[in-house]
């Protein structure tokens, strides 16, 4: 299991490209490499979008990127939530540990 330390780095691999489709307030990702369809809600699409360049990010860096566009509330809670989302994405194989 990945540790929950905020220094853990994550990245999106070019080989893990997805096709996205928005249905009402949901986003579907078709993940070509696994052939799986994932149904996600905000802030997951926003997180994925901010990793599209393939660079490694920590939950802290992701928090700062999201904070430019959204009001995320108390930083500590927001980072914990972002970490949980990133780890869930690692489990799905959409995001990798850097």
């Amino acid at each position: 299991m990945p540790d929950l330390d905020a220094t853990t780095a994550y990245r999106r691999d070019a080989a893990d490209a997805v096709t996205a489709c928005i249905l009402d307030d949901l986003t579907l990702f078709y993940h070509h490499r696994s052939g799986q369809t994932h149904m996600v809600i905000s802030p997951v699409p926003e997180i994925m979008e901010r990793m599209a360049d393939g660079a490694s990010v920590t939950a802290q860096v992701m928090h700062d990127r999201l904070a430019r566009d959204y009001d995320l509330g108390p930083q500590e809670e927001a980072i914990a939530e972002i970490t949980a989302h990133l780890d869930a994405l690692v489990a799905l194989g959409l995001v990798r540990l850097a």
Binding site: R33, S34, G35, G93, R96, L97
Partner: peptide
């Protein structure tokens, strides 16, 4: 072709699990 793709994905998942 799909079988091959899925098999490689499962191999990738096992590799990640045993990282």
């Amino acid at each position: 072709a799909r079988e091959a793709q899925q098999a490689l994905w499962e191999a990738d998942r096992a590799g990640q699990a045993m990282r």
